[in-house]
Computed example of a mutant assay.
Amino acid sequence: MLVGTPRGFADMLRYGWDMDPEQAFLARDDDGTAVGLLVVSLPTYDNTNHVWFDLAVHPDHRDGTVAAALIEYVEQFGRDNGRTMIGYGGFDVPEAIALADKHGYEQKAIEVNRRQDLTGLDWSVVQSLYDEAVAASTAYELVTLTGALPDDMLDGMIAVTASINDAPKDDLDIEDDVYSSERLRAYEEAQAKSDHTIHRVVAREKATGALAGHTVVAVERERPHIGHQHDTAVAREHRGHRLGALLKSAMLLKLRDAEPALTQIDTWNAESNDHMIGINEQLNYKIVARILAYQKTV
């Protein structure tokens, strides 16, 4: 989505999520006035046949002409870069649905943006969820971190991070995300250069020392009241011990002390991800937007 601050937008174009930055193209009319914006992502770590784009059109130019030109441009841009699958995410509103239909894009998934209001959070609920999860996960311990991972945890975190691939993809034609130590370090570099503080809580099996799951929240330093839930995942062989609830509740207790200015955290989930949504709703997350994900072969 095309939201945020000018500085945040510039950082996205410089660094992206993990040093795989997006590109932006500005549409102007004959007078040189900006009328539209196209933001394009060409994945390089995986799914290298894909292009994903967002677009925004000035309210005075929403007769479809500018949007059509931007879509034609991104489709040709994809072809020129050897990409065959074009993806687009639009708000669940009639105009965006009509635009996707008009240009031959097929809906494949629904993503939901939920926002947690920490000012209205009942901390007794958080503490109760944490205590119940601790009782169910006595074979595990928690490691809390701020900033980069220690070198001795890096290899173990590759598989844990890749566990996110088990989250629902609905009908999206996408490959699993591919992680490596280099990519994890690139993520940390991009977040640091974007002036985001990374907070992690990691679950570790006591008997073996194996890393079992993690949750990550990044807090903006430009707007320290805003946090972003970047990931929560539990390795398949460690599920069934309430580690997801343990990690999420422990993170909130950590942030209460570490980030006193923090008032909201945004998270994104597939609408079909019932398990994670169930935990989020216990923690005062409310829906603020639905995004329909579309794809088209070119």
Rank of each mutant, 00 (worst) to 15 (best):
P6T: 05
R7C: 10
R14F: 09
W17Y: 13
D20F: 00
A24I: 08
F25K: 00
F25P: 00
A34D: 10
S41V: 09
N47W: 01
H50F: 15
W52K: 06
F53V: 04
F53N: 01
R62Y: 12
R62M: 10
D63H: 03
G64Q: 02
G78N: 06
T84K: 10
Y88Q: 04
D92I: 07
P94H: 08
G104Y: 02
Q107F: 11
E111M: 13
V112D: 05
T119L: 14
T119D: 15
G120F: 12
D122S: 03
W123S: 14
S128I: 09
A139R: 13
Y140G: 13
L142E: 13
L142D: 12
D152T: 12
L154P: 01
D155C: 08
D155A: 12
G156C: 07
I158D: 15
A159C: 04
D171L: 12
E175T: 05
S180G: 01
S181A: 09
A186I: 08
Y187Q: 15
Y187E: 14
Q191V: 11
K193M: 13
H196G: 07
I198V: 15
H199L: 07
V202R: 02
R204D: 11
G213N: 02
R221C: 13
R223D: 09
H225F: 11
G227C: 06
D231R: 12
V234M: 05
A235R: 11
R239Q: 15
G240S: 08
H241M: 07
A245M: 07
L247D: 05
K248P: 00
K248A: 07
M251T: 02
L252N: 01
L253S: 06
L255F: 03
D257K: 05
A258V: 15
L262N: 06
Q264V: 11
D266G: 04
T267V: 15
A270W: 01
E271Y: 13
S272F: 03
N273Y: 02
M276R: 02
M276P: 00
I277N: 08
G278C: 03
I279F: 01
L283Y: 01
R290W: 14
I291M: 13
L292T: 11
T297E: 15
T297P: 05
V298A: 12
